[in-house]
């Protein structure tokens, strides 16, 4: 039988999917053991037991100085910034995208500036944001908003403009005004795209968040990683990176499920 026709069943698929992860962990364990055998004080690849111990300290033992549980304080701080940033971005992208997508007048006025702004490298604006908005929360949230909004807005404008013209005309023959076309025909049909767009922007949003936290913060996942970098504390950095990844994956799955629940028709139309 040709290889192109070999279809793994459920169990095999699951095992094949897990295989790379298992190999990764094994490679780490072997590498770590080899380095530690040579030098017991090696910090680059700490043993799994050391990692477990550090995670335990970070997550379940209150910090001696502040009395906080470091991992949870950092997570809360970062997710709050992320939620504010993505919330503002999503809302403004939806309005800009909807308006530019359906109103030719608004497209003429807004499309060039949105395209221009989306080309500005957001990280290059970070110093300006720190100078203008100060080192507090606002500048970090602003960085996420500036980095994510234009791209989401363009994506939604494209989705709105891609709706068949026939649907808009049909709505007109059903006596819809521009407003009703926007809120009953176009908006509901770009909401699934909005969620997908948000999922895709999750990565960049985390990038901007960590970059901002690395420079100035007193708590946060990115702040912690860059803080302990000075001590080569790989036993903290590895779990943090894994934790950030896990959070992203969970948010992604959550949004995807939300989309399927809220918009069952969007799956069928494909």
């Amino acid at each position: 039988m040709r290889l192109v026709n070999v279809r793994p069943d459920r169990t095999v698929r699951l095992m094949l999917g897990l295989l790379p992860f298992v190999l990764l962990v094994m490679a780490y364990v072997i590498g770590s053991a080899a380095r530690l055998a040579e030098n017991p004080n090696d910090k680059l690849l700490p043993a799994l037991s050391t990692l477990a111990q550090t995670i335990n300290t970070l997550a379940f033992v209150p910090d001696a100085r502040t009395g906080n549980y470091i991992l949870w304080t950092d997570t809360l701080a970062s997710l709050t910034r992320l939620a504010w940033g993505l919330g503002i971005s999503t809302a403004s992208a939806l309005v800009i995208g909807l308006v530019t997508g359906i109103l030719p007048v608004a497209r003429a006025a807004l499309a060039p500036v949105v395209t221009f702004v989306s080309m500005v490298p957001p990280l290059a604006l970070l110093p300006i944001l720190f100078i203008v908005l100060g080192l507090g929360e606002v500048s970090k949230i602003a960085l996420i908003v500036i980095g994510v909004t234009p791209i989401m807005a363009r994506d939604l404008a494209l989705a709105a403009a891609a709706l068949p013209r026939e649907q808009i005309v049909k709505a007109e023959t059903l006596s819809a005004s521009s407003w009703l076309i926007a809120c009953r025909v176009v908006l509901p049909q770009i909401l699934p795209r909005l969620i997908d767009s948000l999922r895709l922007q999750l990565g960049p949003a985390f990038l901007f968040l960590i970059a901002a936290e690395a420079i100035s913060a007193d708590a946060g996942l990115g702040y912690r990683i860059f803080l302990v970098r000075r001590y080569l504390a790989m036993d903290v950095i590895f779990p943090y990176v894994a934790w950030i990844t896990l959070l992203s994956v969970l948010i992604d799955i959550g949004l995807s499920t939300l989309r399927r629940r809220l918009f069952p028709w969007s799956e069928m139309a494909r």
Binding site: P164, E166, Q167, V169, K170, A171, E172, T173, L174, S175, V185, P188, Q189, F263, W265, S266, M268, A269
Partner: peptide, 16 residues
């Protein structure tokens, strides 16, 4: 407008 109805070959109904 509502005085003239239309049915196209495709895209005549709202998928959502």
């Amino acid at each position: 407008g509502p005085d003239r109805g239309v049915v196209y070959q495709r895209y005549s109904v709202f998928p959502h």
